[in-house]
Design a protein around this nucleic acid. Structure first.
Lengths: 231, 231
DNA sequence: CGCGGCTTTGATGTTCATCAAGTAAAGTGG
DNA sequence: CCACTTTACTTGATGAACATCAAAGCCGCG
C-alpha cells in the first residue's frame, strides 16, 4: 500500500464523468480536496470486515475481490470489482463499518474520497444524490441477480458461467489469465475446490477449453454458453 | 384492489416518522398531494415484473412476497415484506421497470407516493436523500446477507431458519398460521416442495414442532435455533 | 361430483461434498 | 542456493444429501 503523490485534479480526471460529471466547481473542489490515490500490490488487503468506513472508494486500475470471511466454513466471495466500479458502495450508507473485506487480485490503484466530504456534497446537491442512488441500486441489483443465477445452476453451469464472466465482462477476450485461484473460484460460485478442478478438467477433455496453469483459452465459447444456459 | 377514500394527511400518519419525519411542511404537503392508499386482497397481484414503476410503495398493513418469475424452473421468492417495509425500494432507482413481482399474502394496505414527487423532494432535500440511501442500503444488505446464510445451510437448517424467521420476525409468537404454501416455502429457501414437507414432518415426529395444516407451533424453539446454527 | 391444486410418503437415482493421497509450485529460513 | 514447509493443484473412491419420480389422500370450487 502506497499513497501516490502529485495526482491530477478531479476536474481533469478521465473518470470524472463516472459520478462527478454534473457537480459544480465548488462541489468538485470540495471533493478533490479530500481525494487520495492509493496503490495496492497484488494480494494486499484494501479494507477489512468490521473496520470503520472513512472513505468512498473506487477502482481506477486493477482488480479486487469483495468477500465475507467465515472462520467456520470457508470465505464467501461476493463479487469481483473492475476499474470504474465503486467498491465501497455496498453498505457505505447503512453501516459505519465494512460488512466485507476487500483485497487486491492484481496490482491496483484506488481513488479514495473522504466519506464526510461526499455526504456533505450529497446533502447539498440532490441531483447528485439521485445519481448515487442509481449507481448503488444497480450495483446491488446486479449482485442479487447474479447470486440467484449462480445458485440455480448445476456445477457445470456455474463453471461455464464464471468462465464466460471473465471472458466477456473482465477481459473481453477468449483467452486470459484467470486472476483467482481454484479455491477462490469455488468461494465465488459456491462449490468445492475439488469440483472446480474436476469440471475444468472435464471441459478440457471435451476440448471446450484449454488450460495452462492460470491461462485459460475458451476454444468453444458457444458450447460454454449452452452449458451455462441449460444449468 | 381498491383505492381507499378519505385517507388521513401524511403529517398525522403514524408511519410518518418511518421516512418523512424530517421533512418540512412544504415537502410533506407535496408528498401528501400525490399519496394514495390501496387495498389488496390476499393473492392479488400488486405489481408485475416488467411493469413501469410509477410510484414508491410501502406496506401499511398485511404481508407481501417479492419474487422473480421463472417459467423454466420455478419461481424464486426474494423476500417477504411486512408492515413498515418499503416494498418498491429495490430497483426503483436503477430501473424504470420492476425487476420482480409483488403479490399480497394476506389482505394488505399499501401506501403509494408518486415516484416523480418523491424524486423531486429528494433532489431538493439532501438530508432526505441520505435517509433514503440508508434505508435502501440496509434493505439490500439484509437480502444479500440472508441469501448467503440460507445457501450455506443444509435443508434442515433452512427449514429451522424460516420457522424462526416467521416466529421472531413476523409474528412475535411461538405459534402462527404460516402465510405461504409448502411450495412457496420451497421457493423462498431454495429446495423442493417434497423436502419441505418431509423435513417439517421430521421436526413434528421429533416433537420440535406441532403442525395442524397452516398452523405451526414451535414446541422447542431452542432446538430449532440449534439446528439453524449448525446448518 | 369430479377436477385441479396442495399435501404427503416412499422408492430410486443423481449430484455433489468429503476423504484420502499424491504431485507440482511457491514461499522461507539457514 | 538448497533443504524444508507450506500452499495450490489434481485425481479417484465413497457416501451423504438431495432432487426426481410415482402414487395416493385431501380439500375447495365450479
Amino acid at each position: 500500500m502506497k499513497e501516490l503523490a502529485n495526482t491530477i485534479h478531479c476536474k481533469t480526471c478521465v473518470y470524472k464523468n463516472l459520478l462527478f460529471g454534473n457537480l459544480n466547481a465548488e462541489d468538485l473542489y470540495y471533493i478533490n480536496k479530500s481525494k487520495r490515490e492509493i496503490e495496492f500490490k497484488k494480494g494486499e488487503l484494501i479494507s477489512e470486515e468490521g473496520a470503520e468506513i472513512k472513505s468512498f472508494l473506487y477502482l481506477k486500475k486493477g482488480l479486487v475481490k469483495l468477500f465475507k470471511k467465515n472462520p467456520l466454513f470457508k470465505d464467501q466471495i461476493i463479487s469481483i470489482a473492475k476499474p470504474r466500479d465503486f467498491i465501497s458502495l455496498l453498505s457505505i450508507f447503512s453501516q459505519s463499518t465494512y460488512k466485507y473485506s476487500i483485497t487486491a487480485l492484481e496490482d491496483t490503484v484506488v481513488c479514495s474520497v473522504d466519506l464526510d466530504a461526499l455526504k456533505t456534497v450529497i446533502s447539498r446537491n440532490g441531483e447528485f444524490a439521485i445519481e448515487i442512488l442509481n449507481k448503488m441500486s444497480k450495483m446491488y441489483d446486479d449482485i442479487i441477480e447474479t447470486r440467484f443465477e449462480i445458485n440455480r445452476k448445476h456445477l457445470r453451469g456455474r463453471i461455464a458461467y464464471i468462465l464466460i464472466y471473465f471472458s466477456n465482462h473482465i477481459y473481453q477476450s477468449d483467452d486470459f489469465d484467470i486472476p483467482i485461484s481454484r479455491r477462490e473460484i469455488a468461494e465465488l460460485i459456491e462449490m468445492t475446490t475439488e469440483n472446480v478442478i474436476r469440471i475444468l478438467s472435464e471441459f478440457r477433455k471435451d476440448n471446450i477449453i484449454k488450460i495452462d496453469g492460470k491461462r485459460i483459452y475458451l476454444l468453444e465459447p458457444e458450447r460454454l454458453e449452452n452449458i451455462c444456459k441449460l444449468g
